[in-house]
């Protein structure tokens, strides 16, 4: 493939080995392609066609289930909700957790290690356990059925991003910090002007991984977004799933619809995402 400069000189033997890997991975990847293909195919079938001929080609193409989704069940609105929620949450998560992680990992103080562990505790519980106290708080803050409330909650669940950011910040060259300090820059200036721009790869990674978490989250929206017009995509799909047999033509098309933005994001922007990750690669 002509794309990209290959930084490594490789031998013929190595090239052959890589080709074997490529072939193997192609086979592996065809599984997910096949499953998604079946889902898309199924979404164009009529209900009774789907029952008898679950995996084959549709006998007649129909857009009925998409029509039901979009015009009766208001799926576009649901889509919009998920999009807004995800975008705002990512902004919140990246902002607050990078700030916290920076404080934890760039400065040496007595309880830094303990605090680091403290921020990990959130990963060690099932979230369902604490739902009642959270609900009472959210209600007092008037944050039920409020997308901002959800953004707050997602940002507060910062264990994972804080951890990853901390690991990364520890690898940033200390010399840069000292030099800026000598120039008289304030702590926040250093952070926003020097450290954050250097952190693009990890920001991209966190943004990506958090997108998945938020987009696919089922439990928090179920509890805190109770109004029909605030439903998220995952809730929508889950609702069809829990009345599986009656709705399963809708499951195919809802699943297809929920996959489209993800495929677009990765298919068309993967070049950008990767270059976002690479552009920050460090030169010491």
């Amino acid at each position: 493939m002509a794309e990209g400069k290959n930084v490594f000189v490789i031998t013929k033997r190595e090239r052959r080995i890589r080709l074997v890997y490529s072939i193997f991975l192609s086979l592996y990847c065809s599984i997910v392609v096949f499953l998604i293909f079946i889902t898309f195919l199924g979404s164009f079938k009529t209900k009774s066609d789907l029952v008898r001929n679950t995996l084959g080609f549709p006998r007649e193409f129909t857009l009925d289930s998409y029509k039901t989704l979009i015009f009766e069940d208001n799926f576009l609105r649901i889509f919009l909700n998920s999009t807004i929620l995800t975008v705002l949450s990512i902004a919140g998560i990246v902002f607050i957790s990078s700030l916290t992680a920076y404080g934890l990992s760039r400065f040496k103080f007595k309880y830094a290690d303990t605090l680091q562990t403290y921020f990990l505790l959130g990963l060690m519980f099932p979230i369902q356990l604490g739902i009642l106290p959270i609900f009472i708080m959210m209600r007092k803050l008037n944050m039920i059925n409020n997308l901002f409330g959800m953004v707050l909650l997602y940002s507060a669940n910062m264990s994972f991003p804080v951890f990853i950011f901390s690991v990364f910040f520890r690898t940033l060259p200390y010399a840069l910090y000292e030099a800026a300090k000598v120039d008289g820059a304030g702590e926040f200036t250093i952070y926003f002007r020097i450290m954050l721009p250097l952190s693009k790869p990890v920001i991209a990674t966190i943004a990506l991984l958090s997108t998945i978490t938020v987009w696919n989250d089922f439990y928090l929206p179920l509890v805190f977004l109770t109004k029909d017009n605030l439903r998220t995509v995952t809730l929508g799909v889950y609702r069809y799933m829990s009345n599986f047999l009656a709705n399963w033509h809708l499951i195919f098309s809802a699943a297809s619809l929920s996959l489209i933005p993800i495929i677009i994001l990765f298919g068309f922007f993967s070049r950008n995402i990767i270059s976002g990750i690479t552009s920050g690669s460090l030169k010491q």
């Binding site: 369902q128 009642l132 179920l222 029909d228 829990s242």
Partner: peptide, 22 residues
């Protein structure tokens, strides 16, 4: 205004909102 839950979560959610007074 009807809100439809899923059966596996229904009673937990209901208990939560009753205890929260909402």
């Amino acid at each position: 205004e009807l809100e439809i839950k899923t059966p596996d979560q229904y009673n937990t959610l209901l208990n939560t909102v009753i205890q929260a007074g909402d």
